[in-house]
């Protein structure tokens, strides 16, 4: 015969009653969403922004993406040589950079893997659409998200690493 756990039962009642009183006096932890906007933390993973100038169409993000939701098309072109008489330089131009957010699982591997600091997280979250096809964000839309990218936060005191800056 186990002993009757009476104190625990009463403690439980206390917890719910305390929450009741706190919600009535100090308000709830939830937010009435369409009327009041929730403010996510600055590092929240809302949507991915693209800084187009940094992208070299290297395809690393597209290949690492577990969902294959990044579509990149590019072409090479000959840029004029830096010095007169030199060889024309080969450059990559970005034709298409789409992220399909209906497939994306917000793992952030593309952001981590990008060697040229072209992809950034932004905490923006209000981009739902009525049609699922509209969730395919093209490079103009992805570039527009750049405005909402917050600055990187300071590292811990004593860190040697250089703090990255968000290109604007």
């Amino acid at each position: 015969m186990r002993k009757i756990k009476l104190p625990g039962l009463i403690k439980g009642l206390g917890v719910t009653f305390k929450t009741l009183v706190r919600t009535l006096t100090k308000g709830s932890h939830t937010v009435q969403y369409p009327h009041v906007k929730e403010s996510p933390p600055p590092r929240a993973r809302g949507v991915i922004a693209l800084h187009e100038e940094n992208c070299t169409a290297c395809m690393l993000c597209a290949r690492e993406c577990p969902d294959w939701c990044i579509y990149i098309e590019g072409h090479k072109y000959k840029a004029p040589p830096r010095r007169p008489g030199g060889k024309p330089r080969k450059k990559n131009a970005l034709d298409r950079f789409d992220i399909d957010f209906s497939l994306c699982m917000f793992c952030g591997i593309c952001v981590d893997v990008c060697p040229f600091e072209a992809l950034f997280w932004t905490p923006e979250y209000e981009y739902s659409e009525l049609k699922i096809a509209d969730l395919l964000h093209d490079k103009t839309l992805l570039s527009q998200w750049m405005e909402t990218v917050p600055d990187f936060e300071d590292y811990e005191a004593g860190s040697e690493a250089k703090k990255l800056t968000v290109p604007q």
């Binding site: 719910t16 009653f17 929450t19 009741l20 919600t23 009535l24 709830s28 932890h29 939830t30 009435q32």
Partner: peptide
Amino acid sequence: KMMSFMQSRLGPM
């Protein structure tokens, strides 16, 4: 209402 308050939310509003 009471159930919502006990879960720190507002319930139907």
